[in-house]
Amino acid sequence: MLALSYPVETAIKMGAVLAVIPVGALILVYVFLFKMMSHMQSRLGPMEAGFHGTLQPVVEGVKFLQKEDLIPNGADRRIFALAPLVVIIATFLIYAVIPAGPDLVISNLDVGVFYALAVGSLSVLGVLMAGWASANKYSLLGSLRAAGQLIAYELPLVLAVVGVVIQAGTMSLSGIVEAQAEGEIFGFGGIGNPYILTQFIGFALFVVSSQAELTQAPFDMPIAESELVAGYMTEYSGFRFLFFFIGEFATAFALSAIAATLFLGGWYFPGLGTDGALANLAGPIVLMGKIMLMAFFIFWMRFTYPRLREDQLQTFAWKWLIPISLVNIAVTGVLKVAF
């Protein structure tokens, strides 16, 4: 890697990540929300703007840019205006620790995955702010549902990661990728040891909980359109609405990236090595492939299953996922010490 001075290096990293996040979110919007959902429902989806509607996300963005920005009477104006910013900046901050190659990471924090989960849960604050400040019954109910759901599923999400941390012996995401790349399966080290093989229970817990954290169907009660119009987003219009929308997909992108890093080996591809130019060049492409795989799975669930009831959601988290994740931690710990 070239030796750059800190300000130059940071400026390049900021430019790259600020470009990658919206583009990544728009790719998810186009590929999964516009096209995959349409084809699963036997229709074509957008076809006019660009080849097979590829420019449709850009068109939507420009459309929202021209919309009037309405703040309802009686709303807490300052909090109302601030809430989408809290959500989207919390989402941006998750990307600081996701490695796209041996040297391609904004900041390789020692507490990597812990930081990512902590920052990721900040968006609950923005959701509560939005719901309360709107002075609208639908918004208030939606944000309370969102808060109840996000705290219930935060726990299995965090506890599912502990198994991976036990196996890798580090919380740094780069360290976890290297531990997987250097791992062996019963003495065979050809493909490393992606933790999905040994932590498949943790993987299942992580995927289910991230589905709930993203408030996607079957866990989309906070924005259930048939009951609450649009939940906490009901009163938002124009660009502030777009921030919530982009924030949702950017979070989906980030959680897919974290799942790919923790369980699928991240940027590592067997045979390409763990350092040097080749790994740095191929890393982002490999990671993108794994992200799309994870996102495909998440959105497949979203388009397939009907909505749960609020009490079923809480029961599922507290009576199933949390006990299972505690047992998973204990079993992983025993196996780690035994072997």
Binding site: Y6, T10, K13, M14, V17, L18, L65, Q66, K67, E68, D69, L85, I88, I89, F92, L93, Y95, A96, I106, S107, N108, L109, Y115, G238, F239, R240, F243
Partner: peptide, 30 residues
């Protein structure tokens, strides 16, 4: 320094989001 980088990312994100809102203010009708 690694945490300074994170703080800079937060600042950059705030500037980007604020810039977009400012652009929207210029363009959108009222």
């Amino acid at each position: 320094r690694s945490y300074l980088t994170v703080a800079i990312l937060g600042g950059a994100a705030f500037l980007l989001v604020g810039g977009l809102l400012g652009l929207g203010r210029l363009i959108r009708p009222r």
